[in-house]
């Protein structure tokens, strides 16, 4: 990498040295919990209805600030992204998502 190259974005983890000594935990089961399955299903449904694309999901995930990115679980990031995009597009009102 050139010295003047910008640092990689948060999600761009290929070769990232900070994880050089972090073991991969190989024995984890694949199916997500009920929360994850529900978020996953919503993303697919919204895509099938033409309301969002995978690229939009990615943009939303990649916009999450670094500290939050690593603190949130995988499907928690998805939920942040998907719900934010649906507000942006006016599909659901922003007030409806506020506590």
């Amino acid at each position: 990498m050139q010295d003047d190259a910008p640092p990689p974005a948060t999600h761009d983890l290929g070769g990232a040295p900070r994880f050089r000594c972090t073991p991969v935990e190989p024995d984890d089961a694949a199916p997500p919990d009920a929360f994850g399955k529900r978020v996953d299903a919503l993303r697919q449904l919204l895509a099938r209805k033409g309301l969002m694309s995978v690229d939009e999901l990615r943009r939303g995930v990649e916009a999450i600030p670094e500290a939050e990115y690593h603190a949130l679980g995988y499907y928690e990031r998805w939920l942040r992204s998907i719900s934010g995009i649906m507000v942006e597009k006016g599909v659901v009102p922003a007030e409806a998502l506020k506590p």
């Binding site: 983890l13 070769g15 990232a16 994880f19 050089r20 972090t22 935990e25 190989p26 089961a29 996953d40």
Partner: peptide
């Protein structure tokens, strides 16, 4: 579904 380790920062980086 992809397994958790496939989505982990460690696997993606290393």
């Amino acid at each position: 579904y992809p397994p958790h380790w496939y989505k982990s920062a460690a696997y993606r980086a290393r």
